[in-house]
Amino acid sequence: MELLKTILYILLYPGLIYCVIGGLILSGIDRKLLARMQKRIGPPILQPFYDFFKLLGKETIVPRNAAKKAFLAAPVIGLISLITVSLFIPVFKFSPFSTYADLIVVIYLLTIPAVALIVGGSASGSPYAGVGISREMVAIISYELPMVVSLLAIAKKVGLALNNGVMTFSLAQIVEYQAQNGPLFTKISIIPAFIAMLLVIPCKVGSLPFDIAEAEIEICEGPLVEYSGAPLAIFKLNHAIKMLVMTSLFVTLFLSGAGTGILVVDALIQFILIIIVMFFSITLLKAITARLRVEQTLKFYWTYPTALAFLSLILVYFGL
């Protein structure tokens, strides 16, 4: 019975099926909302599904210059890592593998899809991909600093309350703290980190104004330029799931709590919160901004969000 349950978690919720369907629906909602903001009608919400299945049916071309195995394996590795990460993120108090859920580990596992994109692009042998992966790497360096500082602030804040002052990276404990004291974003010391993390999400999922790596009109989607057919479909799916996982992690970190205890209701609330977070951090920014250059991205992240995150860390140390 336990085994069956575990397999259900892995394959159904919050694993494979949920990630694929949830991610694609989220992506559809994003496109629809964006279109409405730009006074367009926009595609139907199920459009990402149609795109996905259409790409699956197309011919897959492997370029002559490519390193074949790395080129084909990269999207699959990225997809599976993302789904695995999704298993570790608690949905309110429900978490199938909570004993292993560690903040730093989750953050590092989330770099694997980015690395898969980089390796795949690099293996295609295209100069556009070369530019793309270089930009992707600079983007990673950019957002890593504010993200790390914000997370340390949370770890210290929760540790002070629950762990006799020793910091904790356990996601289960972060949820536990919020169940006792209300969501973390209501705490004065965490509000700057909350804003900083909200700004980190668009860069992490690669949406405007920080989509420097895939800039379609400059470098033809960078790392994806040589991809076609099924591998491209999987990379597009990765993009959608990355959006779901990042926003879900954000909800767990800042907006979580005790929940209702009924899994279906909790999952629904989580998804609604995810849509709200996505609206503010991804869709709204996408609608009102234009793309930054790569060095501007770096400068932006290492100044304002980093300053906010450090402010948060200092406030936590002062016990606010």
Binding site: S122, G130, I133, I141
Partner: peptide
């Protein structure tokens, strides 16, 4: 933590320059 990411960056550079690409 930042140094760790920069380490990744410089090895991506080696991978792209020596093993992948043209």
């Amino acid at each position: 933590l930042i140094v760790s990411v920069m380490t990744l960056a410089s090895f991506i550079k080696v991978a792209q320059s020596a093993f992948f690409g043209q």
